[in-house]
Every structure is written in C-alpha cells, then in structure tokens.
Design a protein around this nucleic acid. Sequence first.
DNA 1: AAAACGGGGGC
DNA 2: GCCCCAGTTTT
Length: 203
Amino acid sequence: MHLEEVAKRIIKNFPRNHKEKDPFKVLITTVLSQRSKDENTEIAANRLFEKYPTPQTLLKAKEEDLYELIKPAGLYRQKAKRIIEISKIIVNKFSGKVPDTLEELLTLPGVGRKTANIVLYVSFSKPALAVDTHVHRISNRLGWCKTKNPNETEFALMKLLPKDLWGPINGSMVKFGKNVCLPRNPKCDICPIYDYCKWEGKK
DNA sequence: AAAACGGGGGC
DNA sequence: GCCCCAGTTTT
C-alpha cells in the first residue's frame, strides 16, 4: 500500500473535527495547551474566554487575575504573561486581527512553529503541518522518515504528502498517538495500519 | 543539541 | 515522589 493510502487510512480511522475556528481563541487555546492535557486546557480556555473573549478585553486584564482562570493548564505564570503580551501585539501591531502568515505568527511570544501551524490550518484553512511529539514519533515509527526533531519531520512530511493532506493527517496522527500508537506501550494489537508499520519495536 | 522553563494531575 | 502532557526559549 502506498504511503498516501496509509495516511488516508489513519485519517479515516482517527477523524478530527475542529469546532472552534475563531483565530484568537484557537491561538490562545493552543498556547494554553502547551505541555498540558486536553481536559485541563479546555477548562482553562473556557474560564478565560468567559471573562476575556477578545484581545481587546485582555488588554486590561491583570496578570494575577489570569493566574486563577488558567491554572488548570499549568505553567500559568508564563502563559498569563504571554497571553497578555500576545493580545497587546495583536491590537497594536495587527489592528486587532490574528495574523494569517507563519512569519507574523512566529513574532508572537510563546508561539513556535507548532502553535503557528495549528492556527494556519484550523482558522485559516491553509495547508500546514503542526508537528508535535506525536507526529514526530509516529512518522519515524512508520518508516516515513528518519528525523532527529519535529522541525525536520515537518519538512519531510511536506515532501511525502500532498498539501491537502497536511492538516488532516496532522490532527489524525495526534489522535492516533493518544489512542493507539502510544509513546511507551503502543497498542499494536488494535492498530489499523499494523501491516504497513516498519517499526522494529512493534509487537 | 541540550538545558531551562516551571506546573497541574494521575498514580 | 515521579511521570507525563498537541512546546518554546535560552544557552
């Protein structure tokens, strides 16, 4: 089976729907999600947006006030500082709109390639690969690439897959990574692409 | 390339 | 206590 067909099978088996598309909420939620579990991220994001739904409202927020709201996501001091700073830059430099290019997004504090690419794909429907540890690990396990870090994986996957698959395969791989292709004890017995995996460690 | 950053929650 | 968690920044 061709690599592209395997990718499509992953996408079919682990579909990912992004309900929220508002660029500001996607951006801030993704910053909150860094080094944090989904459930806790969601609690933090809901509490934050209930009080501060836009960058304009966040301009007046006190850092200490954000601590309590976003605490469940962890690293709350650092994140509170970044969220306020991001809001300032968006309002003052980008006329209140989240920028829609990789270069501009990367100028925001706490926004790296992974976070920027999520915004590009989810909110602006642009082809983008947000390569995190899951996508990195799985791409290498499958034998799609031999890369040292997520950055290299991003460029490897861009060459391997057509643009219209970048966003979908990314999200689906994360889901796959959390449900089946786990870092430590992968559930190879229920893996839908077991036959196409070149990993020596597979069981 | 590696270390620092710096916290909640589960076990 | 120790580990993981859709990372980013600094050294």
